[in-house]
Design a protein around this nucleic acid. Structure first.
Lengths: 232, 232
DNA sequence: AGTGAACTCGAACACTGTACGAGACCCCCG
DNA sequence: CGGGGGTCTCGTACAGTGTTCGAGTTCACT
């Protein structure tokens, strides 16, 4: 009876007749709305209005909101470019890719939410996955290890960036006050001596820079670890 | 004018009078609901009913639903235990912690969603963060590197587990049919030769086992990378 | 006994996603 | 020219959401 596995990607999109109305344009408008107002800012009615259409008209092109989100989500993957490992070497290619993934997520913070909710099965995601697989094959991995190495890098980038996005959303990037932050966190971490230690360092003055350093540190570590695996 | 930084954690919980009604009991009930029905299954009305209370009564103990989620989220952190690095060595301690984090998230799939939405600032999260900091200090890191190493490991575990949870949710763990899956994914990945290669391997027969292997692989890599950093 | 705080909760508001079905358009075939 | 019959739009309606408000209850203490 298995309800089986249906997905937007296995269904043909519908042709548009009325100008400004097609799966493609709907997704584009949805992306704009998402970038401007976040995941909560996207409603079918608002999206319809933006396209001068009734909210329910969209259902002709898209089965439901989740499908729409799948489509939008896949667009983010389109922005991640995988450099050719034959030209720059696998390690350099992996680094560039990692930075690109992080940037793409920071550009579209709502995608961080979707990561925990939708599997990445769209054509753009597939395309990236395909190229990544080749990257790690060129690097020297074989068999299942190709995918394992791939997952390892991807996991690191996601795991690093997702909380970063959450943090940006919680306390807006703009109205950030290092002193106030230090005070709040100090209070919250009052009974934790090791944590408090960190508070007194100046890492709260320019959190953006510190996070970039942290990302670097981890990326190098991960790549080192993979390299070591390669040697064995 | 900075709207400042308010959080549940900085406000005292309210005392309960009516039995079965307190911040603590509300959170426990919320956890049950979340574990049973997922993030979408938790509504204030349902939660109220579960506690034989009106939905709006809960607002006496909790400012809004987001606060409630913060509280529930922190409970997940309580389940993550950090072994003493002095007893078992930092590497072993880090491994055990990593497995524990993964398990905790798999036990409470809804927490994977929250990771991308809420910063982890609750007391339990703080406690874990404190112990983790000590772990990496014992390992030999110093200064900012303590936190960087910490982030690296955490990021890996999160990044690996979050998509795993999403995948489990998309196609239920129970009604999983390897052949059907292979067929679907093969179709979706039709034009990607490198990806297709993977499809023909037997990794789709026992995805649970493969994911466990992948987690292992990456964990070892990350720890190797950190160790190398330590040597330098 | 009276006052005020602590607490409960029904009603209402402004939303949400989506099912349904009536209508409009347009092309093709008899 | 007269229909079908698909393609497409969208108003209405429904069941649900989080949350505000304010009226009502209970209870401890003066």
């Amino acid at each position: 009876m298995s309800k089986s596995f249906t997905s937007v990607w296995l269904r043909e999109p519908r042709k548009a007749t009325t100008p400004g109305r097609s799966r493609e344009e709907i997704v584009r408008a949805a992306l704009e709305l998402l970038d401007e107002e976040g995941l909560g800012g996207l409603s079918m009615r608002k999206l319809g209005a933006k396209l001068s259409a009734g909210a329910t008209s969209l259902y002709w092109y898209v089965a439901n909101k989740d499908e729409l989100l799948e489509l939008a989500y896949d667009e983010v993957w389109a922005e991640m470019i995988v450099p050719d490992p034959d030209e720059v070497g696998w390690r350099e290619a992996a680094s560039v890719l990692a930075y690109g993934m992080r940037q793409a997520m920071l550009r579209h913070p709502w995608s961080a939410d979707l990561l925990g909710r939708l599997p990445a099965l769209g054509p753009n995601a597939m395309h990236v996955a395909d190229k990544m697989r080749r990257l790690f094959k060129v690097a020297g991995f074989s068999g299942l290890d190709i995918d394992f190495a791939n997952s390892t890098l991807t996991a690191y980038v996601f795991g690093m960036t997702i909380p970063e996005v959450a943090w940006n959303a919680a306390i807006g990037v703009e109205n950030y006050d290092p002193d106030e932050m230090r005070a709040s966190v100090t209070k919250a971490a009052a009974q934790f001596p090791d944590l408090l230690e960190r508070m007194h360092m100046d890492s709260y003055d320019d959190p953006q820079a510190v996070r970039a350093m942290a990302f670097d540190f981890g990326l190098v570590s991960v790549l080192d670890g993979l390299e070591r695996r390669l040697a064995a």
